[in-house]
């Protein structure tokens, strides 16, 4: 059974992209065929993990959403050497201010078609043998992010331990995730013990809290490095593998 995960959060900078990339590689290291899509069209950073921005990208996620290209044309190889293991392909979105400005002017009709194009693309990937699709989203209730949530099987909520994040997450849970009938799992990232009192028996808002990753400067210092590849024993890498195993049990 193929699986589509949207990595989402209420606030920015909670660690979504870091978790999405490492999780994708962790699945691939298990021998799975994985596809990673940058759905954070207003602040794309996925590419920083795979190249310095100088390589040729023929088409973008932007082209998929607008219906100009199909999924097979926007997805490309990551260039990451996984040896004998699985495969990770990726689709980037365009970090270009004109493109991002234009996005802000799209109407509801365009967004409605964008959702259809994502769902069509997802089905096409699955038909071609992709087993895990990971959607790295932007924070909050931007259209692209909620479209990604609507298209996924499971929302991986990356929560950072601040009061502001808790309040916004609760809004998203009730106003979006539950409304769209989504399975969810919560990761507490940059976790410190001062603010986890709303967790009861490993559950919060009715969803399992499957990991608590501490705030570690080393992770920020090495941002752009895929730790599950370069440093498997790192606390972050082990947390990612643990998340992957727990997701397997939820689904």
């Amino acid at each position: 059974m193929a699986l589509t995960i949207a990595v989402h959060s209420a606030k920015g900078g909670t660690g979504k992209t870091s978790i999405a990339v490492n999780l994708a590689i962790a699945y691939a290291l298990d021998g799975r065929k994985v596809c990673l899509l940058d759905m954070d069209l207003r602040g794309p950073t996925l590419r920083t993990f795979f190249d310095d921005g100088s390589s040729e990208v023929p088409f973008w996620v932007n082209d998929l959403l607008s219906g100009k290209k199909g999924i097979n044309e926007v997805v490309m190889d990551t260039g990451v050497d996984l040896g004998m293991a699985g495969k990770v392909s990726v689709a980037y979105s365009k970090a270009d201010i004109f493109e991002i400005r234009e996005l802000a002017s799209k109407d509801r009709k365009w967004q409605s078609n964008a959702l259809k194009n994502i769902i069509t693309g997802k089905k096409e990937l699955i038909r071609n043998g992709t087993e895990v699709i990971i959607l790295d989203t932007g924070p909050g209730v931007e259209y692209e992010s909620i479209n990604a949530v609507a298209a996924c099987d499971l929302v991986l909520i990356v929560h950072s331990s601040t009061k502001a994040c808790s309040e916004c997450t609760e809004q998203l849970v009730n106003g979006v995730y539950k409304s769209l009938n989504k399975k969810c799992a919560i990761v507490d990232n940059m976790h410190h013990c001062s603010l986890d009192d709303d967790t009861l028996d490993g559950m919060r808002y009715g969803f399992p809290v499957i990991a608590a990753i501490p705030c570690i400067c080393d992770i920020a210092k090495r941002s752009g490095e895929i730790l599950v590849l370069s440093d498997r024993e790192h606390e972050f890498s082990r947390a990612i593998c643990d998340i992957k195993d727990k997701l397997g049990r939820i689904l």
């Binding site: 409605s112 259809k116 769902i119 909620i146 609507a150 979006v176 409304s179």
Partner: peptide
């Protein structure tokens, strides 16, 4: 064009219609 069913409109539908519409999207 304001009739078009985007994801925000989907969220504002009553539960029973939302389930039907989401399924139709899929």
């Amino acid at each position: 064009s304001s009739d078009s069913l985007d994801v925000m409109m989907l969220l504002s539908l009553p539960d029973h219609l939302r389930t039907t519409a989401t399924t139709l999207f899929e």
